[in-house]
Design a binder for these strands. Structure first.
Lengths: 180, 180
DNA sequence: CGGGACTATATCTATATTGATATAGTTTCG
DNA sequence: CGAAACTATATCAATATAGATATAGTCCCG
């Protein structure tokens, strides 16, 4: 969808090779974007045809020949146009949330176990993201936003979960002392 | 990815036609999942080959001939297997968050405007989701989770945004009286 | 010097997803 | 009655994404 713009963004400061870009996506864009070589190389060719990046071939100084890409003025303009653009619907299918919608197909015990497992996987992801080496301040801004979303989801599962699946205690019984 | 399981989930209570399923995804799964006919029909055929659903052709009682699908016992088992399954990484590319990561390519005024527009689009989406007619209690559970995520993102943009782009007031100046 | 890790480009397949189009009968409203 | 909206199945093309594979040179460690 907008991999072209992500590449333009990563190239905004310094020229990079395709391999470098793949690594940068892995390291700097971590939860926000991911893409493999098979997507990156064709997109770079497209960016070139559009005149948004320039390619310089480096002789095999060390390693195989390298293709170094840098943005053009038109490329930088395009990046800004994209950033200013009205944000579109931006919804995507979410397998985790879809599971929640059908959880009544499980018996109570199983349902409870599934919710706990979901919660645990979210916690693991949050911990992983927190332990990541910091990227630039703006990429980190995006990453933090993603963490906030995950934390909200975890809170919801913990609090709201109880309302949807009567756990050990039967529904309707409110015991104020039992708040652990 | 898991459209097959979403369809099994929607068929868990009552048999439906392909058209019906498309409508149900639109109405009941709203922010959590979306899919068009071109995905649904082939997947239904696949589910049939796997023995997870049965097809009954209804004569053109009213309208064209209808294909009514219902789950088999194997289909219900498969749905439960999926629900119990260890939740996988479940990350997807997020164009909105990606924009945040490159916001430094805009001048301060533009940057501020872009953040406000992003926030506004999130508010609009929250309002839309809140105004949706209620689905079953579990589908609503999934939808609520999605709303919680959006609200967390909005809070983050409002609070955290200020830290990243010094607005009118220079950074570092904390004025306790100005809390609206 | 050999093996393993790393840098690098590139292609192939499969699947997922979106959006458009074709066809056709039914219902509803004016 | 005619037009528009709705129910319904189905295919096509384009794009997006994931994952595997091929090739090949360099660097570093023991």
């Amino acid at each position: 969808m907008s991999l072209p713009h992500v590449l333009l963004g990563l190239l905004r400061e310094a020229p990079r090779t395709g391999y470098d870009l793949a690594r940068a996506i892995d390291r700097e864009m971590d939860p926000v974007w991911s893409a493999g070589f098979s997507q990156i190389y064709p997109v770079l060719a497209r960016l070139r045809r559009k005149g948004w990046v320039l390619l310089r071939v480096l002789g095999p100084r060390h390693g195989p020949r390298r293709h170094l890409y840098r943005t053009t003025a038109a490329g930088r303009r395009e990046l800004q146009r994209w950033l200013r653009e009205a944000p579109s619907p931006l919804r995507h299918n979410d397998e985790g949330l879809a599971r929640l919608a059908f959880l009544d197909a499980l018996a109570l015990t199983e349902r409870r176990k599934a919710l706990l497992a979901f919660e645990a996987s979210i916690s693991a992801e949050i911990a992983r993201l927190r332990s990541l080496p910091p990227a630039g301040s703006f990429p980190t801004f995006g990453r933090r936003a993603a963490i906030e979303e995950l934390e909200a989801l975890r809170r919801f599962l913990r609090a709201g979960g109880a309302a949807f699946y009567p756990a050990e205690a039967p529904a309707g019984r409110r015991d104020a002392r039992k708040r652990r």
